[in-house]
C-alpha cells in the first residue's frame, strides 16, 4: 500500500521533470541543439510566476498568460542566435551553459539567494490533493501531470499529423534532404524553439506551486532531466513522458523500500545502463 502511494507520488513528481525535459528533448532531436538555456527559461519563468502572483494576487496558473508568450519569444530568439552563428551541437551545449550561469547569477542578484515560496493565500494547491480510495494524488504534481499529458499529446499529434510536424521529422533525420524538399527549416526551427520556450514557461509556473524557489535549482534539475531525456529517447515526446513517470516511480519506490539517499544512485546507474544497452531510449518509436 505504502509502495503504491510512493510510486504514485513519485510518478506524478516525475511528470514535472518530464515537462521540463520535453522542450530540451525536442530541440535536441529536431534542431540538433542541446539547449541548457532551457533550464534558465524554466527558472526565470518560475521567478516571474512568483513575482506576478505575489504582486497581483492572481492565481499562479493565471500567470502563464504573460510568461508563455514571453518565453516563446525568448526561446525563438535564442534559436535565431544559434542559426545566425551556425552553432554546432556541442558548441550549443557550451554556449547555453554560459547563458544558464548568467541567468542564475542575474536571478540571484534580483531575487536574492533566499528561499522563495508562494504564500498559501494565493497558492492553495500546495497542501491539496485528490483522493481516490485511500490513494492521494497531490495537487501540485497532479497539475504538472495534467499539463505534461496535454503538452505531450499535442506535440505528438503535431509531429505526426501536420505537414509542419512531418517536415520537422524529416529535418531531424536529414537536414540536406529536408532542405531539398523546400522546407523553410529556419522558420520551423524558430517556431519549435519558441514552443519549447513556452513549455519551459509552463514548467516554471508549476514548480513554485509545489516547491521552493532558489536560484541554483537548475543545477539540481540537470541530472534528473537529462536522465529522463536519455531514457525517453532523444526527440521522442511520448517516451519522455513515460521516462519521467518511470524515473519518478522508481525514485519513490527506492525511497520507501531503501532510503531516499539511494534514489540518485539507482536512477543514475539506470541511466548509465540505458546509455550502454539502449542508447536510443527505453521506448523506441515505431520504425525508429
Amino acid at each position: 500500500m505504502i509502495e503504491l502511494q510512493a510510486a504514485v507520488s513519485g510518478a506524478l513528481n516525475g511528470s514535472l521533470f518530464a515537462l521540463m525535459a520535453l522542450g530540451l528533448s525536442l530541440a535536441w532531436g529536431f534542431l540538433k541543439v542541446i539547449n541548457l538555456a532551457h533550464f534558465a527559461m524554466i527558472l526565470t519563468a518560475g521567478y516571474l510566476t512568483f513575482e506576478l502572483a505575489t504582486s497581483t494576487g492572481l492565481s499562479p496558473i493565471a500567470t502563464i498568460v504573460a510568461t508563455v508568450p514571453l518565453m516563446f519569444v525568448v526561446g525563438a530568439l535564442i534559436q535565431l542566435g544559434y542559426e545566425r552563428f551556425g552553432v554546432s551541437e556541442l558548441n550549443s551545449l557550451l554556449i547555453s551553459y554560459g547563458l544558464l550561469i548568467i541567468t542564475v547569477q542575474v536571478v540571484t542578484n534580483i531575487w536574492t539567494a533566499d528561499f522563495q515560496r508562494l504564500p498559501t493565500e494565493i497558492n492553495p494547491y500546495a497542501s491539496e490533493s485528490v483522493a481516490v480510495g485511500s490513494l492521494r494524488f497531490p495537487m501540485p504534481t497532479l497539475l504538472a501531470a495534467g499539463f505534461a499529458v496535454i503538452l505531450v499529446v499535442t506535440s505528438a499529434l503535431v509531429l505526426e499529423r501536420t505537414y509542419a510536424g512531418r517536415a520537422l521529422q524529416a529535418f531531424g533525420q536529414d537536414r540536406e534532404i529536408a532542405s531539398a524538399f523546400g522546407i523553410d527549416h529556419r522558420l520551423l526551427g524558430v517556431l519549435l524553439a519558441g514552443a519549447a520556450g513556452a513549455s519551459a514557461a509552463i514548467a516554471g509556473m508549476l514548480f513554485p506551486i509545489g516547491g521552493t524557489l532558489t536560484p541554483d535549482l537548475p543545477f539540481e534539475w540537470i541530472g534528473q532531466v537529462f536522465a529522463i531525456v536519455i531514457l525517453g529517447g532523444i526527440g521522442n515526446v511520448t517516451g519522455t513522458l513515460y521516462a519521467g513517470l518511470l524515473v519518478g516511480a522508481i525514485s519513490g519506490l527506492v525511497a520507501v523500500i531503501w532510503t531516499p539517499s539511494t534514489s540518485p544512485f539507482v536512477v543514475f546507474s539506470l541511466v548509465v545502463l540505458a546509455l550502454v544497452f539502449r542508447p536510443k531510449g527505453l521506448f523506441p518509436q515505431k520504425g525508429g
Binding site: A6, S9, N13, G248, A255, V256, P260, P264
Partner: peptide, 20 residues
C-alpha cells in the same frame, strides 16, 4: 528512520512513509 540527501525534492513518497 529515513535519511535523505541534501537537495532532496521527492517529498511525496517520503510523506507517505511517514504517514504510514
Amino acid at each position: 528512520d529515513i535519511p535523505y540527501p541534501p537537495g532532496y525534492e521527492d517529498w511525496g513518497s517520503t510523506a507517505a512513509q511517514v504517514r504510514d
